[in-house]
């Protein structure tokens, strides 16, 4: 059986330098966005999803675990942050903290349950768990059911940054995205990340070498869920609402699609994929359900002909790791 990702290229100092150059380029480009007149709301939304896809990619690309329920972290963190901000009236930094803590707690519980099975079963279990959570949120009073939590106050981050100004909010979201991205990048290049990759390649062998693979997988799951939650908390400030769509399985599918389009197991793929898919939804918003059909077609086309994704193909062409 061939693995999902084919980055057999070793991580060399050369590769890491390339990646840091691309990262710096990406940071500068994104930092210049407010000067160009591009609609900042679109880019902020894309950044939140990019971080979410990067967190998802940590599990599938480096741990070989395909989670079909990552929307539950997005939604849970969103609901926790939104409730804290609106009902308790806390400051933005506390609101983010509450959301991230909620997602982290959820990832501990769901991770403990879902890593008991591998491969295809893991995907089905995460999907079922997120559906369980969907029904709980549908009935729980604090989520306001179908209406969701609306009109969330944005407030002042650390008492100085006025988040209701789009440019300020943009740089805060960008800082959050870059911070989360670097954390994931550091993780996959750490000894922990190397063990994770070895589990993906051959779990039995990793066990025989003395690694407690379940603990590594659980830790990766918690890290991924928590960072996904952070993306969900940031998204609350951008969208100013928290609703059931964020917990629905279609959202989990979109996260998978973004990562697949960009390139599973590549460092920058999920970011590119998120921008492509969000842009597509933006431009095709008038076509109703055809957007779903197009997403389905992209899924099929990617799996059949384009398994490396955009960044994966570029990296393969230049024989570089990206």
């Amino acid at each position: 059986m061939s693995a999902l990702t084919d980055d057999t290229l070793p991580v060399t100092p050369q590769a890491m330098r390339d990646e840091m150059i691309v990262f710096a380029g990406m940071a500068v480009l994104l930092g210049l966005v407010p000067l160009t007149g591009i609609y900042p709301f679109f880019v902020m939304q894309a950044l939140c999803f990019a971080l979410l896809a990067c967190a998802f990619n940590l599990l599938i690309g480096y741990g070989g675990l395909l989670s079909f329920g990552h929307a539950m972290f997005l939604g849970t963190a969103g609901y926790c942050s939104a409730h804290a901000l609106k009902v308790w009236g806390v400051t933005p930094e506390i609101g983010i903290l509450v959301g991230v803590a909620g997602a982290a707690a959820l990832s501990v519980v769901t991770g403990f349950i879902s890593i008991r099975r591998q491969g295809i079963y893991f995907s089905m279990i995460t999907l079922a768990l997120s559906q369980l959570l969907y029904f709980i949120y549908l009935q729980a009073p604090f989520t306001h059911g179908e209406d969701g939590i609306q009109g969330i106050p944005q407030g002042y981050l650390f008492g100085i940054f006025n988040l209701s100004k789009p440019t300020v909010l943009y740089y805060v979201v960008l800082a959050g995205f870059l911070g989360g991205f670097l954390l994931i990048y550091r993780t996959i290049n750490s000894p922990f990340g190397e063990v994770l990759k070895s589990i993906r390649e051959n779990e039995q062998r990793a066990i025989s070498l003395g690694y407690k693979t379940d603990q590594y997988k659980l830790l990766a799951f918690i890290l991924s869920g928590t960072i996904a939650g952070f993306a969900g908390s940031l998204k609350v400030f951008v969208a100013q609402n928290a609703s059931l769509t964020d917990v629905h399985w279609t959202m989990s599918g979109e996260i998978v699609l973004m990562t697949l389009v960009g390139g599973l197991g590549t460092v920058f793929g999920p970011v590119v994929g998120a921008f492509v898919i969000i842009a597509m939804q933006q431009y095709l918003a008038g076509f109703g359900q055809w957007v779903t059909v197009i997403q389905g077609v992209i899924f099929v086309a990617c799996v059949l002909t384009f398994r490396r994704g955009i960044i994966g193909e570029i990296a393969h062409y230049f024989r570089r790791s990206l």
Binding site: L4, L66, T292, Q295, V297, I298, F299, V303
Partner: peptide, 14 residues
Amino acid sequence: HLYGLLLTFGIALI
């Protein structure tokens, strides 16, 4: 195996 899941998910969406 996971590619089969992704492909059939795409078919379901279509």
